[in-house]
Design a protein around this nucleic acid. Structure first.
Length: 482
DNA sequence: GCTAATGATTGGCT
DNA sequence: AGCCAATCATTAGC
C-alpha cells in the first residue's frame, strides 16, 4: 500500500502512467475495499493524484472510489466520478453502484429506509447510467417480440409441452437458452391456467369429477397436434396482449367482436379448443368444414356475412356457457350445415353424431359427453335438469328476412323475465317456448326463413368429459321436414 | 404512479 | 429431469 502510494507520487508529472500502475491500483482497490482503514487513504491518494483521470478508467479503481464517496454521503461527487470514468466495455458493478447511489438519494428524499422494486425501477428510469458505463445501453428484459411470437405460435399451434428436443430447437432458433425456453413454456402453461381459473365464475362440480385439476395433460389424438397441452395452452381470441394463435383465420382478426369472458372448466379435459368455444357465442360467424376429426381439424372460423350470428347480445350470455357446451354447439351447427335435416337421419361429423328426429315443437339439441370416442349411436338424453337455451335459425342480414341457412342458428337470449340469460331450470323435456319466442317449427316454417329451435343442455356433464367422446343428439322436434 | 404482463427463482413433488 | 405453485423483480402500457 505504502509502496504503491510512493510509486503513484513518483509517476505524477511524467505523462500517462504505466499500464502496470493502473492495474496495480485496481488490484489494490479490490483487495482493500473491505478494509475501511486502508481504503480511505488509498482513495484519497487516488483522487488527489494528477493521474486520477487515467486511474479511474480502471473499473476497480472507479468502483472503490465512487463507493467510498457514496459512503461519505458525497453522492454528487460519486456520480460525477462515475460519469467521468471510461471503463472499456462498461461495468455491471459500476452500473449497480450508480443505481445504488440514486436509490439512496431517493430514499433520503422520501424519508424511507427502503424502496420497493417499482420505486427502484422508476429511479433507474429517471437516472439512467451514463453511456460510458453501459455502452450497449440498457437492454429490455423481455424477449423480443419475434421471439415471443415464435414461442407463442409453437405453444398454440404445436404444443405447450415441447419435448426436450423441441425446446432445444426453439432455443437455437430464438437465441435463447434451453432453460429460458423451458421457463417460458412453464410460465405460459401456468398463466393460461390461471387465466381460465380467473374467468371461471362458478365451479362445475360434475365437470370436476374424476379429473384432478393438476392431472396430467390429456393424451391428444395424433390427428390433433394443435391441442395437445390442454385447456390452458391456447391463446384467447383477442384478449390481452397475446397474439392470436394460428388457428384463427385471418378474417376473424378483423372482426370487432368483443372478447367474451371465458369461464371454462374443462376439469381435466384439456382438449377443448377454447378459442372456438368462446368465439362460438360471440358474433356472426360460421364454421367452415375442416378435414378429419377433432378440434384440430375444426372448421376454420370465418365471419359469416350475416350468417349464424350467434349470440345476439353476447353480454347476456352466461359466461359459463362459453365452453364447452357452446363449442359443442358450434360443432353441431357446423356439422348441421352439411346436412339436410331428415327425420331419423344419422349424421356423422367432426366426431359428433347427430340424429334428426321428428317432433312437433322445436329443435332440441341434447349433448352428452362421453369420455370415449363415440362410435355411432346416440347419447341418452341427460338426466337431471337440463339448462336450456334457444336457437333460432339465422335471420340473415336483411332485417330478419334472411335466406334460409339450413342448420345455421342464432342463439338468442330468452325473453324477459329471465334476467341473466338463458339458463333456465327446465325439465328434461322440451322447454316451452316463451311467449315472445318464435315458437314451434312447422314443416312449412322450416322451409321459411325463420324456423325456431330450442336447445336443451345437459347439466354439467357435457363440460366434464372429453370432447372426443362428445355426442350430440340433435333432436329435431319440430314438425316433419319436408 | 398504478397495474398487469413477463421472465426468473425457489422449493416441493413425482 | 420435469412439473408445479408461489413468489419476486422487472418492465410496458396507460
Amino acid at each position: 500500500m505504502q509502496s504503491f502510494l510512493n510509486l503513484l507520487r513518483g509517476s505524477e508529472g511524467s505523462g500517462p502512467p504505466l499500464a502496470e500502475l493502473v492495474t496495480l491500483a485496481g488490484r489494490l482497490c479490490r483487495d482493500l475495499q473491505d478494509d475501511p482503514a486502508q481504503v480511505q487513504p488509498l482513495v484519497s491518494a487516488l483522487l488527489d493524484s494528477q493521474l486520477r483521470l487515467y486511474l479511474l478508467d480502471n473499473a476497480d479503481v472507479a468502483l472503490v472510489c465512487a463507493r467510498v464517496l457514496a459512503q461519505q454521503e458525497q453522492h454528487q461527487d460519486a456520480c460525477r466520478l462515475l460519469e467521468g470514468c471510461r471503463v472499456p466495455g462498461g461495468s455491471q458493478e459500476l452500473v449497480q453502484l450508480w443505481n445504488d447511489i440514486h436509490y439512496r438519494l431517493v430514499m433520503k428524499r422520501l424519508g424511507v429506509a427502503t424502496l420497493t422494486p417499482v420505486q427502484k425501477f422508476r429511479c433507474r428510469k429517471r437516472n439512467p447510467p451514463p453511456p460510458s458505463l453501459c455502452p450497449g445501453g440498457l437492454k429490455s428484459r423481455n424477449f423480443p417480440r419475434e421471439v415471443r411470437q415464435k414461442l407463442h405460435d409453437f405453444a398454440s399451434g404445436v404444443s405447450a409441452n415441447p419435448s426436450k428436443a423441441e425446446r432445444e430447437r426453439l432455443a437455437s432458433e430464438t437465441s435463447l437458452s434451453a432453460e429460458q425456453v423451458y421457463n417460458w413454456f412453464a410460465n405460459y402453461r401456468r398463466r393460461q391456467r390461471a387465466l381460465l381459473q380467473r374467468a371461471e365464475p362458478a365451479p362445475d362440480v360434475a365437470a370436476d369429477a374424476g379429473a384432478g385439476a393438476r392431472g396430467p395433460v390429456a393424451p391428444r389424438p395424433s390427428s390433433c397436434p394443435d391441442l395437445g397441452s390442454g385447456r390452458g395452452d391456447r391463446p384467447l381470441w383477442s384478449g390481452g396482449r397475446e397474439e392470436n394463435g394460428p388457428v384463427q383465420s385471418p378474417e376473424t382478426t378483423q372482426e370487432p367482436w368483443e372478447p367474451l369472458a371465458l369461464s371454462l372448466d374443462f376439469s381435466g379435459d384439456e382438449t377443448m379448443p377454447k378459442p372456438l368455444a368462446s368465439r362460438s357465442l360471440q358474433g356472426a360467424e360460421i364454421y367452415q368444414e375442416g378435414p378429419g376429426h377433432g378440434p384440430a381439424s375444426l372448421p376454420t372460423v370465418c365471419p359469416g356475412s350475416g350468417l349464424c350470428p350467434l349470440a345476439a347480445s353476447s353480454d347476456m350470455l352466461d359466461p359459463s356457457l362459453a365452453a364447452p357446451e357452446s363449442w359443442l354447439m358450434s360443432l353441431a351447427l357446423a356439422s348441421s350445415k352439411e346436412v339436410s335435416f331428415q327425420t331419423g337421419q344419422l349424421v356423422h361429423g367432426h366426431g359428433l353424431d347427430f340424429m334428426m328426429r321428428p317432433a312437433d315443437a322445436a329443435v332440441s339439441v341434447s349433448i352428452a359427453a362421453l369420455s370415449e370416442p363415440s362410435p355411432t349411436g346416440f347419447a341418452a338424453p341427460p338426466s337431471g335438469n337440463p339448462q336450456s337455451m334457444y336457437l333460432e335459425e339465422c335471420p340473415g342480414t336483411s332485417g330478419g328476412q334472411a335466406e334460409r341457412q339450413e342448420g345455421s342458428f342464432l342463439v338468442t337470449q330468452p325473453p324477459p323475465p329471465a334476467p341473466e340469460f338463458i339458463l333456465t331450470q327446465s325439465p328434461p323435456e322440451l322447454t316451452p317456448a316463451p311467449s315472445t319466442f318464435l315458437g314451434p317449427v312447422s314443416a312449412t316454417e322450416l322451409s321459411q326463413p325463420l324456423p325456431s329451435s330450442q336447445v336443451q343442455w345437459p347439466d354439467g356433464q357435457a363440460s366434464s368429459d372429453a370432447f372426443w367422446g362428445a355426442r350430440v343428439l340433435l333432436e329435431l322436434s319440430g314438425g316433419s321436414l319436408g
